[in-house]
């Protein structure tokens, strides 16, 4: 008779601590670095749409849980053509995409473009419009807008 004595299985456990550092991060992408508004008859086209259509915006943020991710825009001053100026409030926009909002441009305060809660990738469009008035002096006007995405 052969008896087989079972050998008790031996188990060894150990632990490994894995840490991942997930810091706040914000990445903003605009579909273009330039927007231009063509000349138009103020009576026929009181609001001039930007050439090329709406601006596509992608805002990627890793943020603290439940914190507010903000995308704002501010102009560096009025639209200028030499000494002639047009207030940047002549530029307004409508938006598509969850969290994106319509607004009126300012050169003195940040204006909200979009807001979201927590981390994520958000995409939308901003359709910029230029108020077209007879009272403007002729010229080619320029300004620079700064978009700021903050993830706290």
């Amino acid at each position: 008779m052969i008896a087989a004595t079972p050998v008790a299985a031996q188990t060894q456990t150990t632990t490994a601590t894995i840490s991942a550092n997930v810091g706040t991060l914000a990445t903003l992408t605009l579909s273009s670095a330039n927007v231009s508004f063509p000349d138009a008859d103020p009576d026929a086209v009181p609001q001039v749409a930007a050439l090329g259509g709406p601006l596509s915006i992608t805002a990627k943020a890793r943020a603290t849980r439940l914190s507010q991710v903000l995308l704002t825009v501010q102009a560096n001053g009025p639209l200028r053509s030499g000494l002639d100026t047009i207030a940047v409030s002549a530029i307004t926009w409508t938006s598509t995409g969850a969290g994106f909002v319509a607004g009126t441009l300012s050169s003195t305060t940040d204006v909200l473009v979009g807001s979201w809660t927590g981390s994520g990738t958000r995409s939308g469009t901003q359709d910029l419009m230029f108020q077209n008035l007879w009272t403007y002096a002729s010229g080619t006007y320029t300004a620079t807008l700064t978009y700021t995405l903050s993830a706290p």
Partner: peptide
């Protein structure tokens, strides 16, 4: 806890 910020600029021109 540090806040992250990214900025982009957009050049605007209007022909009158």
């Amino acid at each position: 806890l540090a806040q992250s910020v990214d900025t982009k600029t957009l050049n605007v021109s209007a022909t009158v």
